[in-house]
Simulated scan of single mutants.
Amino acid sequence: MTSQDVSDAPTVAPRVLADRVARGDDVAIVDLRNRDEVDEWRIDGPNVTVEQVPYSRFVQAQVTGDVADLVADVPEPLVVVCAAGEASAEVANALAEAGVDAVHLEAGMEGWARLITSVETETSAGTIVQYDRPSSGCLSYLLVSGDEAVVVDPLRAFTDRYARDASDRNADIAYAIDTHVHADHVSGVRDVARGTDAQPVLPEGARERGLTYGARPLAAGETLAFGDAAVRAVGLPGHTSEMTGLEFGDAVLVGDSVFVDGVARPDLEAQFDDDPEARALDLAERLHRTITEQLCSLPPTTRLFPGHRSPDAPRADDGTFSTTVADVHDTLDAVGRDRAAFVDAVLSESPPPKNYRRIVDVNLGRESIDDETAFELELGPNNCAVN
């Protein structure tokens, strides 16, 4: 397009757009990236529509004066999106000059990926702060009791945020815990520990998967005291062999076992096995036992806080992405309560998280990478659920 000044292009900040999506507003996106990029990863939500229009078409239309025609079927106001916010600023400017109510997403999809939001809720043991990364649906947690806190499933890209939020609540971080070896994002456990006095903690089974760095092993049934409360480890194998939930008062952080509207996939760890099909089958059967024999045996009103959420996942009344044991019964009926039906459903083919093999190696300590490489590795959807 032309070399016009785009510094005054109409803009929307990622946080403002995320608020609109979270409220369920109608949001119309015009995405300038290539079709394969949009198909793989896009801004999504219950009332979000995405129209892919290549940037090159706007370049051509700028010459002919037909810019507005390219979005004639897109409801206004619309949000123009690109990879980093430069092309979208040009297009939003051109559309605005043509009389179209259009803004561009500040910093593009890169800015979207650098956003994390939070919401707070109370349990019988203390406060849960739930963090949501809208670009991937990854959920992480800060548990606060008295003058101490615990971080659960922290993302490396946001380690400063957890420490700052704990400090704002006059709490020191005692432990940084991963519920399992993540395959969709780079863990921030070691970074949180380095930046605070927190002790890094991973499930005991992580050592069997090849963990190379020093972390306190956490076995099912163990408790970690902090502040005026404690978390109790609950073995929830299935998504991975070492998956461990954390009971915190009348709530349970369930990692990647069940979600608001689905269950975990059991095949990712299996891809590292000599016989991946047999290993995936074994993990699928273990996931079925975890859900039917452990989670479904808890009181129906028990609140469950997952490690991920889908773009269309509804929020609970307290604003969190959480579910209850009663809702898990409904999910199980939809997926298949019978073991054979359940296993068949969760082993249906779906694409794995992008770069998952390398991310697992990083999270086990087999490979060291810088912050920018870590950020780039985890761009895209998490793909850890069967919805």
Rank of each mutant, 00 (worst) to 15 (best):
V38C: 08
D39S: 12
R42A: 10
I43A: 01
I43G: 02
I43T: 01
I43Y: 01
D44P: 03
G45V: 05
G45E: 10
G45P: 07
G45T: 05
P46G: 05
V48S: 01
V48F: 05
T49S: 15
T49Y: 05
V50Q: 11
V50G: 10
E51C: 10
E51A: 14
Q52I: 05
V53S: 03
V53D: 08
Y55M: 14
Y55W: 14
S56Y: 08
F58Y: 09
F58E: 13
V59D: 14
Q60L: 15
Q60N: 13
Q60H: 13
Q60M: 14
A61M: 11
A61I: 06
Q62C: 12
Q62N: 14
Q62F: 09
V63Q: 15
T64P: 12
T64C: 11
T64F: 15
D66H: 10
D66L: 11
D66M: 08
D66Q: 13
D66Y: 04
V67Y: 02
V67D: 06
V67R: 02
V67A: 07
A68R: 04
A68E: 06
D69I: 04
L70F: 01
L70Q: 01
A72F: 06
A72D: 14
D73A: 12
D73I: 00
V74S: 05
P75G: 12
E76T: 10
L78V: 00
L78I: 01
V79D: 06
V79L: 08
V80G: 10
V81A: 11
V81P: 11
C82K: 05
C82N: 07
C82M: 07
C82V: 07
A83Q: 15
A83M: 13
A83H: 15
E86A: 14
A87M: 14
S88K: 06
E90K: 12
V91M: 08
V91K: 02
V91D: 03
V91Y: 02
V91W: 03
A92C: 09
A92Y: 04
A92W: 01
N93C: 10
N93T: 14
N93I: 02
N93S: 15
A94N: 11
L95A: 13
L95Q: 05
L95M: 10
A96L: 07
A96Y: 03
E97I: 09
E97D: 15
E97N: 08
A98R: 00
G99K: 01
G99A: 02
V100I: 03
D101G: 07
D101L: 04
D101V: 06
A102Y: 00
A102T: 00
A102P: 00
V103A: 03
A107S: 15
A107M: 10
G108Y: 08
M109L: 14
E110H: 13
